[in-house]
Design a protein around this nucleic acid. Structure first.
Lengths: 307, 307
DNA sequence: CACCGTTACGGTATCCGTAAGGATT
DNA sequence: AATCCTTACGGATACCGTAACGGTG
């Protein structure tokens, strides 16, 4: 059993059981991968794949179980690299962050500015996506951490650290009838077409629950994951926006009216996601502390080692 | 980075930084190990060892951190082997149990008899030692599980599953004056020289606490980890024995008087120890259930994944 | 002097890439 | 017909064991 064999196995599974494609990303030949996997299967005397002739159809049960452990081993090789990199040079390295657009555009710029000042040698890479896409990137190792606008619990290897609460608000064109509703109620809101995030009105989401409780069925005319998109279409008069308060700013959004809706919906929670087994470099701890001061190194280790 | 390199590194550390001895257990040459470790250090661009000329003095801090992760990786290779073995043949394999003499001689025989009847193809190996030695064997991977007479919390990778409570008793030669003390008190016991386990009267142990509370300072004339040894010397009149009730049997120990002391000391707890990350084979789960029926597969996984 | 780690060297085994073969969609 | 996995083969590479070298206690 070699790391290479496990690596190949994992990459084939990740490429939908296509050895040829896996070979491309691994910079080797199909034959090499095929051979190594056969050797692995021989050594373990287990079929990892169910084959039909010369096609790989799916992963066996044994293969599934092996896969989980192999993935941890691969993560551990990355951990070892991170450990040694940390020991040779604290201040140099990469930090890949996956975040939702709200975080990337509104919460992070200030944090990253500060961080970059103290760690000019650390290359930061940002990628944006839905909360689940972000979580995915962390689990697969493409990102070191994710910052999402909700707590994701589907992944056993992912640890979510709650950071901040955030409330929701309604944005409308200026002089919109809603601006005269004081206090603002759910009934008022439900009267107008809504533009909001993809998952805001998903089943059992806090907002959906709030409307359901009053038997209101608001219409959603448009969804987007980027609050700037939402605000643009609100300006065009397509509907009213239901977004996070972090995504609005009275000065920047002068062409919009901002109506606080914190009293109408349960607050949301921003959380940082990490892979449980992953080694966190010193500067990553520092980054997290800039984002959420209560998350000290000790606090994080505690959450990571317990459940 | 290869598994071989990590394996070599770990084994050198385990052999007190002696490459030559490590080479023996690894069935290879000193030169091979030396080279691979240098290659590893080069790839990671980190010194794993502090050397003085051609002596290896100690492990660097970086080396320590790498070691921990490397050990998990090695454990994971064992896990993969166990996984695949489980899928090819549920009923064949090894089960290495480390236990204290009390468990090995008194609690386990019946369990192992039953187990062996349902899994005749599983080779059981028993090793005995002090609770800490047993825990050590599990942590280093020499044993799959340990059964100890106390809960050991020093090892972060070790998960202890409480199984049974046990009480203590006093064994004396027949017609000993103590047999006439009814009810038996701590003061009575403290009047005679005591023969007991090594750690029974350690600081803050339940027994020590009981004596301390009454300001009694019993004398211990002899300690042993094996209750049969203790009983032998009790028979010879050296003193009275303070042992676990599991270690006495009215029929087998006819030449001794057995006095229950459950009302005088806090009960002890028998626990099974497992390495958190380890894959547990089906028959091992079955073995554990034979020993402690409440420890189902689900119960164990729960404890293993949470803290 | 005994022990030990490092370096050098030659043989072997392994692994890769190319290319051909065979199976499936 | 196109795609894809497997097998075969030759060459390059990596690895190991032996042995000599250089430090250390």
């Amino acid at each position: 059993m070699t790391l290479k064999q496990l690596r190949y196995f994992i990459e084939v599974v990740r490429h939908n059981l296509n050895i040829s494609r896996a070979a491309q990303t691994l910079c080797t030949s199909q034959a090499a991968i095929s051979k190594q996997i056969h050797l692995l299967e021989e050594e373990l005397s287990v079929q990892l794949f169910i084959r039909h002739g010369k096609r790989i159809l799916r992963v066996t049960r044994a293969g599934q179980d092996v896969l989980e452990t192999a993935e941890r081993m691969l993560r551990d090789t990355e951990n070892i690299r991170a450990i040694t990199a940390d020991h040779t040079d604290h201040s140099r390295g990469n930090l890949a962050i996956a975040g939702t657009p709200t975080q990337i555009y509104y919460a992070l710029p200030h944090v990253i500015q500060q961080f970059s000042a103290s760690y000019p040698q650390v290359q930061i890479s940002l990628s944006q996506g839905s909360p689940h896409q972000c979580a995915d990137r962390v689990v697969t190792g493409e990102a070191d951490l994710c910052i999402a606008t909700e707590v994701i619990e589907e992944y056993p290897t992912l640890v979510m650290l709650p950071c901040h609460q955030w409330s929701r608000c309604i944005v409308t064109p200026r002089r919109h009838p809603l601006t005269r509703c004081k206090p603002l109620t759910l009934e008022d809101i439900a009267r107008y077409p809504i533009i909001t995030y993809e998952f805001t009105l998903a089943l059992r989401s806090p907002t959906r629950v709030a409307f359901d409780r009053k038997n209101l069925k608001p219409t959603v005319v448009l969804t987007a994951s980027d609050p700037r998109v939402i605000k643009t279409y609100v300006t065009l008069g397509l509907g009213i926006g239901l977004v996070s308060s972090t995504a609005v700013d009275a000065r920047q959004d002068r062409n919009l009216a901002i109506l606080d809706a914190g009293h109408l919906f349960e607050p949301g929670i921003t959380a940082i996601g990490l892979v449980r087994d992953s080694y966190i470099r010193q500067y990553a701890y520092d980054f997290i502390r800039l984002f959420a001061p209560q998350l000290t190194r000790e606090a994080i280790t505690k959450v990571k080692t317990r459940l």
